[in-house]
Simulated assay, not measured.
Amino acid sequence: MYDKHELCKKIAEIYPDIGECGIGIEVDYSDDKNVWIVHLKKGEHELDHHLEIADADRCMDGEQCVGLGLEIAQLKSNIKGQQF
């Protein structure tokens, strides 16, 4: 098993542009929902993504998390003032 720090680090490795564009990232586990909550933030733009356990496991195995990748693209688009 892995903790939120390990998952956060792995997500940053898989999506290196998160750090490049300065998006803040936080990861917490929700016992109520049984999902990881990935919080992305840059300036006034914020986005929460619910990452299912199976998807988080794939991320930890070095595979891209498709849903999270789409959310990151949406946030970057919003930051640039474009619609996604």
Rank of each mutant, 00 (worst) to 15 (best):
V38W: 00
N78G: 05
N78K: 15
H50Y: 15
C59M: 08
D17G: 06
I25M: 09
Q83C: 11
C65T: 07
A73H: 05
A73N: 10
K76L: 08
E71V: 08
V38G: 01
K9G: 04
E71P: 00
D48W: 09
G81H: 04
I37V: 15
E71D: 15
A73W: 04
G24S: 08
E13L: 14
H50V: 07
Q82W: 14
H5E: 15
G81E: 10
A54P: 08
I14Q: 06
Y15H: 02
D57P: 07
D48G: 01
D3H: 05
M60V: 10
I14E: 06
D55M: 13
P16R: 01
L7F: 11
V35T: 07
G69I: 11
D32K: 13
G19K: 04
K41C: 11
A12T: 10
I72G: 00
K33G: 08
Y29I: 01
D3S: 07
E46M: 11
G19Y: 01
K42F: 13
K80H: 09
I23Y: 00
D32Q: 10
Q64A: 15
K80G: 03
D57K: 12
M1V: 06
E71T: 10
K42C: 09
G24W: 03
L68Y: 07
I25W: 01
E44K: 08
G19W: 02
C59T: 11
C59D: 01
C65V: 03
H5F: 08
E6W: 04
E52W: 07
D17R: 09
C59G: 15
V66D: 07
G62D: 14
E52Q: 13
E44L: 08
H50F: 15
V66P: 02
G24I: 04
W36K: 02
K76I: 10
D32I: 09
D32L: 05
L47P: 04
I11E: 03
K9R: 15
V66Q: 07
D61I: 05
I53T: 12
D57H: 12
E71W: 01
V66M: 13
I11M: 07
Y15L: 03
D48Q: 12
I72W: 00
